[in-house]
Simulated scan of single mutants.
Amino acid sequence: MREELLRRINERVWHPGDIIPGEADLAEEFGCARTTVNRALRDLAESGLVTRRRKAGTRVAINPPHKATLTIPIIREEVEGRGSIYSQSLLKRDKQTLPPHLHAAFPVSAADRLLYTETVHFADDRPFMFEERYTNLEAVPSFEAIAFDLITPNEWLVQNAPYTAGDLTFYSVNAGQRLARLYEALEETPLFVMERTTFNGDLPITHVRMTYGPGYRLRTRF
C-alpha cells in the first residue's frame, strides 16, 4: 500500500499541496484496516513526503526533502578510476592529543592520545592528495597495530570500521610553503580541502583533512 501511495505522489497523481483522501476512504479503496493506512501515512510523513494536521487532513508536501546516500571513497580506487597508477607514502605516524581547534568537530577528551598519520597519495607518481588524520583508538583498537605499508589508513578504515553517521565540510585554502613545495606550485595557489568526521553511534572514529592538488574537481552523482 505504501508503494502505491508513493507512486501517486511521485507521478503527480497527487500534486504538491493536494489533500489526499482520508484514512477511511483509503482503507475502503485498498480493502484494509485503517491502522494499515495510518501506518503507511505515518511512514510517508516521517520521510517528509506528506504533512499531517489534525482536523486538516493529509497533504502532499510542497517541498519534500531530497536525500542522498554518500559512500566514503577509497582513494586508491579513485585514482585508478581516473586511469592512473596509484601509490602512497606514509610521512608521519605517532600518538598525539587533538589540537584545540578540532575539538568542536571531533569530540574526544583533550587528554586522549589519538593515532595521527600523514599520507601522500600519488597518481602516476604525482602528488594527488595530502591526508592528515586523527583516529580514535578507543573506537578501533586494532588500528594501532597496522603498519600501513600495504594498505592506507583510508582503505583500512573503510573496510574495517563501520560508521553510523558523519560530518563533511568542503572549503578552499591557499597553499602554504609546505603544500606549495609538495605540489610544485606557487604559494597562495588555491587548493580544494575536504574534512570528514565519522562516528559509530556517539563514539567518534576518525577525523581526516584531505587537501587535493591544484585543479582537482569533485564529481558526484545523485
Rank of each mutant, 00 (worst) to 15 (best):
E3I: 11
I9H: 03
N10C: 09
R12G: 03
V13Y: 13
V13I: 12
V13N: 10
H15R: 15
G22Y: 04
A27G: 07
A27N: 08
F30M: 10
C32T: 14
T35C: 01
N38L: 07
R39A: 15
A40W: 05
D43L: 14
E46M: 12
S47R: 15
G48K: 09
G48H: 09
L49A: 11
L49G: 08
L49H: 13
V50T: 11
T51N: 10
R52K: 15
K55A: 13
K55P: 00
T58R: 05
R59L: 10
I62A: 10
P64E: 09
T69P: 07
T69V: 15
I72E: 01
E77N: 15
E77G: 05
V79K: 04
E80F: 01
G83Y: 02
G83M: 02
Q88M: 11
L90V: 09
H103D: 11
A104R: 09
P107F: 02
A111Q: 12
A111S: 15
D112N: 08
L114D: 01
Y116P: 02
Y116E: 08
Y116V: 06
E118P: 00
H121M: 03
A123N: 06
A123R: 00
D124F: 04
D125S: 11
D125L: 08
R126I: 05
R126F: 04
P127R: 02
M129N: 06
E132C: 05
L137I: 08
V140N: 00
P141A: 07
F143A: 06
A147P: 06
A147R: 12
L150H: 14
L150A: 15
T152P: 04
P153S: 08
E155Y: 02
W156P: 07
L157N: 03
L157R: 01
V158E: 02
Q159Y: 04
Q159P: 04
Y163W: 14
D167Y: 09
L168W: 13
S172G: 05
N174V: 03
N174M: 10
G176N: 11
R178N: 06
L179R: 04
R181P: 00
R181T: 11
L182D: 01
L182C: 05
E188H: 07
P190F: 05
P190S: 01
F192H: 07
V193M: 04
V193T: 09
T198C: 10
F199Y: 15
G201D: 12
L203S: 12
I205H: 02
V208L: 03
R209T: 09
M210L: 10
G213R: 03
Y216V: 07
R221L: 11
